[in-house]
Design a protein around this nucleic acid. Structure first.
Ligand code: MN
Ligand code: MN
Ligand code: ZN
Ligand code: ZN
Lengths: 140, 140
DNA sequence: ATGGTAATGAGAACCGTTATCGTTCTCGGT
DNA sequence: ACCGAGAACGATAACGGTTCTCATTACCAT
């Protein structure tokens, strides 16, 4: 992960989010994680790094970032939301049901299938979500 | 909906769930709903029908029924789970983002696409979830 | 410096869900 | 029909993740 603090600061500004020290700490921690994390996991990792960030701020920042499309939200744990810094393009996720690894599927080629399925029932599709659950190379 | 109480009772037994009066009430209410409902919605509708069912029993029954594969669980509302009596076959859902209507998409033809996407990253897919969000015929 | 706005931290409140526990129901064996 | 064991149930407390409140602090333009 070669993402420098400067890059992250620019990412925030570009997304219409003011780059405050706290928000940079949160985003920096997200960039450090390879898999997705819950708000509380993220908060305790920040604490281990001697950040004084409050839990409410972590929640506020994650809500803001997902609203602005900077991060993805996954709901594959029961009730608990997971957050992940992802690529910009539309994509979906592969989830390992054993080790919880998350991998991005670039190139969602489903637009035609989605449009057809929606049209068949008189719908116009505006969005679609796909999650594939399985076992990763290490776990099977 | 021509589903009689007798049908529902047999559905329960066939699924390995003892058909008690309370469970039949819950299942009967699910069969009455065209869209999905939350546990609390279901509970208050039972109350309106002079059922003395407790909220805990509603939650217990919904958990049991989804565990046995009798009903589907959708998580498209924030955190709150929705339940729906669906067909037996593997399928996905169309959701209207305005009126929250839910329609089943029969025939998920995605197995090949899913297997290929998983294989490309060394995964073996065991399950997949697809939700299409859009506007239904009435709402657009 | 000064005033105004946005962000933050601590902790209370909220709310959907689950656990607890005493009571009631169910059903097979008698 | 009666009985006893185990399952189901209802009321309510507890739980846990998230959001709200509010007093304080940081930031920024004047
Ligand atoms: Mn992603
Ligand atoms: Mn369904
Ligand atoms: Zn794995
Ligand atoms: Zn609609």
């Amino acid at each position: 992960m070669t993402t420098t603090r400067q890059d992250l600061s620019e990412l925030l500004e570009r997304s219409g989010v003011r780059a405050t020290p706290r928000r940079l700490e949160v985003l920096e921690e997200l960039a450090r994680e390879s898999d997705d994390v819950t708000a509380q996991q993220l908060w305790s990792r920040l604490r281990e790094r001697d950040s004084r960030a409050g839990l409410a701020t972590v929640y506020r920042t994650l809500a803001l970032l997902s609203e602005k499309g900077v991060i993805d939200v996954l709901s594959h744990h029961g009730g608990e939301q997971c957050y992940r810094l992802c690529g910009d393009a539309h994509h979906h996720h592969l989830l390992c049901e054993k080790c919880h690894r998350v991998v991005e599927i670039q190139e969602c080629g489903l637009d035609d299938w989605v449009a057809a399925a929606a049209n068949e029932h008189g719908f116009v599709a505006t969005e679609h979500r796909v999650e594939i659950v399985g076992l990763c190379a290490d776990c099977r």
